[in-house]
Computed example of a mutant assay.
Amino acid sequence: MTALKARDVSGFLNQPDLKSGIILIYGPDAGRVRETTDQLQKHFQGKDADPMNLISLQYADLDNPDATIETEANTSSMFGGQRIVRVRGATNAAAPTLERLAAENVPAIILVEAGNLTPKDKLRKVLEQAKSARALPCFADDARSLDQLMREMFRENQVQIDNDALQALKDQLGNDRQITRSEVEKLILFAAHTKKVSLEDVMTLCGDNAMLALDEIIDSAGTGHVQKLDQALSRAFDSGIHSSAILTRSLMHFTWLRAQRAKMEEGTSLDQLVNGARPPIHFSRKAKVQTQIRTWSSGNLATACTRIYDAIAQTRKNASLDIAHTRQALLAIATIAARH
């Protein structure tokens, strides 16, 4: 058997035990599959890589994929060196050809990228059983491995990132390794001269700007900062955020506040309410949200929701006045908050 466990992949990448044959790289995380294949390609190309020896194929784009892969795998290098055939997006349909090539002990190294494969999938099954093949699983990163990846990248480039900035970056990124690497590389490039990354840098360069703008609007309204709300609304409208998105997000927020206020009155602590929120509340907003739950009464929250409902109805009746109705409703809500 030549199937590797996930824990063995790192060791194999550092020192592959094949000089030719087939390596299947598969898993649900496309970014990690691609990155792992890149690392293997770099290893087999060596320091003085000849680009003529690298053949890159997209399985779905080939008219006759079986014949093409077989031909490329058996073609000798024109100027010496090992031929590398990289096949992207392989499916179970490629299994018979790859099984045959594995049995023939071809001189080339064939790197096969695939999606998530179960033990019953033929592509994985035949290559796990072949002596001249290896099957490498690439499962999605967890929070710990992504944290390690980010810290290593910043350290290798001698860039210091503040703890709150690193936490914000982790909160905003998903678990795709390629996306994570791309965002960290962007920050490293940005900090090429200062060698420092702050929370503001992360929020500016990596944040979901539309979501950040909406959060600023609802928190300004909910905490009674009228002038700040007016400025946030102007920026949002100028950047193309539609009034319907603002009103919908505001209604969701104040409806949620009503539910949390009721729980608080029943004895649940503010920390429990905010820390248990789903989806999670970003740490930079937690104090503001706690303030809103504590200071808004159930009656005033009901009034706020009614104002938003009315604004939504008005914007549907007269779309040309949507900005005016949105601004009027939220400024009225901010005024209520400012009085308490």
Rank of each mutant, 00 (worst) to 15 (best):
T2C: 02
T2Q: 09
D8Y: 11
D8V: 07
S10V: 06
N14I: 01
D17R: 14
I25H: 01
G27R: 06
D29E: 13
D29P: 03
V33N: 04
T36P: 05
T37V: 13
H43C: 02
P51Q: 00
M52P: 02
L54N: 07
L57S: 11
Y59G: 05
A60K: 15
A60I: 09
L62W: 14
N64A: 00
N64T: 00
N64E: 08
P65M: 10
P65N: 11
T68F: 09
T68D: 15
I69G: 03
N74E: 14
T75K: 08
S76A: 15
S76H: 14
S76M: 15
S76Q: 15
M78F: 15
F79A: 08
G80R: 14
R83Y: 11
I84G: 05
G89H: 12
A95S: 15
E99Y: 08
E99L: 06
R100E: 14
L101D: 08
E104F: 02
V106M: 07
P107V: 13
V112G: 04
E113F: 10
G115V: 07
G115W: 02
T118Y: 04
P119S: 06
L123V: 09
R124Q: 13
A133N: 11
A135M: 10
L136N: 09
L136T: 09
P137Y: 09
C138Q: 00
F139R: 04
A143S: 13
L146M: 14
D147Y: 01
R151Y: 06
F154R: 00
E156I: 03
N157A: 15
I161S: 00
A165G: 12
L169Y: 08
K170G: 01
L173D: 02
T180W: 01
E200F: 07
C206F: 10
N209I: 04
M211H: 13
A213F: 03
D215C: 10
I217G: 03
I217S: 04
I218Y: 03
A221Y: 04
A221Q: 04
G222Q: 02
T223V: 09
G224N: 10
H225S: 05
V226S: 09
K228P: 02
L229Q: 01
L229G: 03
D230W: 07
A232C: 10
F237T: 04
H242D: 12
S243W: 06
S243L: 02
A245I: 04
I246W: 08
I246P: 05
L251E: 08
H253R: 02
F254A: 02
W256L: 12
Q260L: 13
Q260H: 08
M264G: 03
G267K: 09
G267F: 10
D271Q: 14
Q272E: 15
L273F: 01
N275R: 14
A277W: 07
R278D: 06
R285V: 05
V289C: 05
T291H: 06
S297K: 03
A311R: 05
A313V: 04
K317P: 00
D322H: 11
R327C: 00
A337L: 01
A337T: 01
A338N: 08
A338R: 13
H340E: 01
H340W: 01
H340L: 03
